[in-house]
């Protein structure tokens, strides 16, 4: 396969994953604003930070208002992280790698782009927001379904999967990075209303709310949430799950190409940090530092994969 094509597939999957993640964050923020009068500005600031575009937002808007935040996150063409921009880049990458995709996958991406482009043509009224957000997630699910159901399990599939898992791990880590402080043990009695709001926000941002409650049966503690999102390999957005999958996909590439490359070692090292630890252990040695380092190492893995498989010249 061409290095350029591998890169295109990797980024196609990253962008698709990213659009879905952004939509989920907006959804969590929106719900928060609806249910808690007190949330407001801080919550949107933290959503913007998680997506990585708070500074860009501030450069354009003086205050953080829900409408302009939602608009900036969903449809601002000047914001490279907006759902609009990200979907456009996903579609460009799909066009560039058209020969590696099945007709089903290409049409799912192309359809998704056409539907969203139309929906995001005008500012989204509050009443339409739930519909728009669920459409973003649906389109992404359609692409994933087409990928799963129609693609050969070869290097093409591996590069797509590596892209989406690296992006997803990054996203979950960013949610934790922005909110790590509410997960730290404090002197305050557990279950104060503010904490509850924040915990709910974290779980919603990772689509983890109902599965968490189902597994923990009412036992909502910050430690359990942190454990769930970092170490629980059953949870498809946890760091452990992502790295299980990454190790798998890299191994499959190794078998197909008959060699191992530096990225394989790097991924194994990162995975070891997740499997050899307990949550107490991580919190004791510094939750925030742990997350920070993880984000850096995850990004380093991404660029090692780029180098190892010659995405660029």
């Amino acid at each position: 396969m061409l290095g350029k094509t591998a890169g295109g597939l990797f980024w196609l999957s990253r962008y698709l994953e990213r659009s879905e993640n952004t939509a989920r964050l907006v959804e969590a923020g929106f719900r928060m604003a609806l249910t808690r009068a007190a949330a407001g500005e801080d919550e949107w600031a933290s959503v913007l930070t998680t997506v990585g575009c708070l500074n860009a937002y501030r450069a354009k808007h003086e205050t953080i208002a829900p409408n302009s935040a939602v608009d900036f996150l969903l449809r601002d063409k000047t914001n490279p992280m907006s759902v609009y921009s990200v979907m456009q880049m996903a579609r460009d990458n799909a066009r560039a790698t058209r020969t590696a995709l099945t007709r089903e996958v290409w049409e799912a991406v192309n359809d998704g782009w056409m539907v969203l482009k139309e929906m995001l043509r005008r500012p989204v009224a509050q009443a339409d927001l739930p519909n728009v957000l669920s459409t973003v997630r649906q389109q992404s699910a359609l692409v994933r379904g087409a990928l799963q159901g129609t693609m050969l399990r070869n290097d093409i599939f591996s590069f797509s999967r590596i892209g989406s898992l690296i992006e997803r791990a990054d996203n979950t880590a960013r949610i934790l990075d922005v909110k790590y402080y509410v997960l730290l043990p404090t002197g305050a009695p557990v279950g104060s209303s503010l904490d509850n709001v924040q915990w709910e926000m974290i779980l919603r941002s990772a689509s983890a709310e109902s599965s968490f409650h189902w597994l923990n049966a009412g036992n909502v503690t910050p430690k359990a949430i942190a454990e769930f999102l970092i170490l629980d390999a059953r949870m498809p957005r946890s760091l452990a799950f992502c790295y299980d999958g990454l190790i798998d996909s890299l191994r499959e590439l190794g078998v197909e190409y008959g060699d191992t490359r530096p990225s394989h070692d790097l991924a194994a090292k990162l995975e070891a940090r997740l499997t050899g630890r307990t949550i107490d252990n991580i919190i004791d040695s510094g939750l925030h530092e742990f997350i920070r380092e993880f984000i850096k190492a995850n990004a380093a893995l991404a660029s090692q994969v780029e180098q190892d498989y010659r995405f660029y010249e």
Partner: peptide, 13 residues
């Protein structure tokens, strides 16, 4: 892209 795809050939720049 169409022809490369249908022929099973690489599409290069």
């Amino acid at each position: 892209a169409f022809l490369a795809d249908q022929m099973g050939a690489e599409l290069v720049e």
